[in-house]
Every structure is written in structure tokens, then in C-alpha cells.
Design a binder for these strands. Structure first.
Lengths: 113, 113
DNA sequence: ACTATATTCAGCCACATGGTTGAATATCCC
DNA sequence: GGGATATTCAACCATGTGGCTGAATATAGT
């Protein structure tokens, strides 16, 4: 019953505004670790940890060229997370539809019990 | 520049498969805390903490009737998270489109610098 | 070889998280 | 009132997270 461990990592990676900001930068274009760190008032080491977190979640791919680490967005996990959300919105839509149905036919309540 | 604090809570709440499982149950119908806890091998107190986490993230609304706490899904934060993801997929799509454009016209690279 | 640059590593700290247990609270029922 | 039921609270523990600093590593440029 243990769900894909990946999804935990993806959602937890998204649960921090610094990392979401980095993803925003990466959505525009490839960035180095230093460029990703620059907007934040934290140390480079801390920012580097955030990049690693994104990497562990599969959201970022890294290419080392010389001393510089180039990062690019890998959108697959985002799509996966989005797919999960969409599925639940679908279930919830069905629930709303059932509710509407119930309101139209008030005798028939709780028909899926 | 501090982003909506709510989004942190939503994504972090989603970053645990127990809580995602509870949301799945709630997508079907309203459940009590005990019902939500039942599928898991953890103590009721622990499950209760998960419910509270979902509640703090705004994903669950609770109604107390007598000694029983009824929980229902509140989909707005899910929609918000989904909206965030969709926005980033849009940016990434634009990036892909720009890449394609670049491949068609190889002279014009990095035109948004 | 030396110095500057890009980045990670290791150790530390404070706080959050996810689990436990045992007691408290509130309600329902006889 | 008294006992069973539903749930939370409080204290505790282990581990994770997000920040720091200072040292290490690797590369680039002179």
C-alpha cells in the first residue's frame, strides 16, 4: 500500500517558497547554483541545499561544466503532482455532481454507502 | 516577496501518503476522525494529528456533532495548489516553445537575456 | 605556482514532524 | 451516577529540515 515515494519528495520540495522561487527562475531558463542563490539573503551553502532537495525530488537536473553547476527544470514530477491533484479534483467533482443529483431527488440520499 | 504562506502548508500537507490517503477517503464522502484513522496501523492520536495538519492547511473542515468529529474535504486549497502547478507548466511550455523556435532559427539564441 | 571563483561538505543549532503512551474531556446510554 | 465511546491533550523521543560557519574541492585565469 506504500505509495510511490517520489510523490512525497515532490510535494515536500514544493512546500517551501525559496524552492518554488528557484523553480520559477528555472522555468524561464537554465541557471547556475550561484544564480539561483543570488535573490535570497541566505548563505550559498543553504541555497545549495535547496537545490539538492529539488534534485532529490527529480525536479531539477544538474550538469557540471568546469567549476560551474548548471541546473535545468525537469517537469515530469510537476506533471505527476499535477496529475495527482487533477485526479482528486475529479473525485471531488463527482462528489459535487452527486450532491447536486441528491438535491434534485431528495429521497435518494447516501446511495453509495 | 514572501509568498502566500498558505501554499507552504498545502504542499507540505500533501507531502505525506497517510494524509493523501485521508483526502482520498474524503473525496468520496464525509468521514469521522475514527473512520479516517481506521485504515492505518498508527494510534488514533497520531491519525488525529494528521487530520489537524490537513485542517491547518485548509484542506479539511470539521464539524463536531456530539462526541463525534465529522470531516469533509475543502477543495479550494487543492485548486490553489493546482493553479500554481498549472502556471509553472505554462511557463515551462513557453520555454519549450522558445526552444523549438530557437532550433528553427539557430542564429537567434538567448533573445530574452 | 598562486589567487580568485564556484560549489560542496561537515559540524553545529533550533525548530518541525511523525510517532508513541497515558491521562483528560466530552458525550452517549443504561 | 457509571461505564463505554470518540477524540484531544501533554509529554516524550527520534529523525528531518533549514539555517549558519569554516574548511575542503575543483577549476579558471594570471
Amino acid at each position: 500500500m506504500v505509495e510511490y515515494p517520489r510523490l512525497d519528495l515532490v510535494f515536500r520540495a514544493l512546500g517551501d517558497s525559496t524552492r518554488r522561487g528557484m523553480l520559477r527562475q528555472l522555468a524561464v531558463r537554465e541557471r547556475t547554483v550561484g544564480e539561483l542563490a543570488e535573490p535570497y539573503r541566505m548563505s550559498l551553502a543553504s541555497a545549495s541545499k535547496h537545490v539538492k532537495t529539488l534534485e532529490r525530488a527529480g525536479l531539477v537536473k544538474r550538469t557540471v561544466r568546469g567549476r560551474t553547476h548548471f541546473c535545468r527544470l525537469n517537469p515530469q514530477p510537476l506533471a505527476k503532482a499535477d496529475g495527482w491533484l487533477r485526479e482528486y479534483e475529479r473525485l471531488w467533482d463527482i462528489r459535487l455532481a452527486r450532491l447536486e443529483e441528491m438535491l434534485r431527488h431528495p429521497d435518494n440520499e447516501d446511495s453509495d454507502r
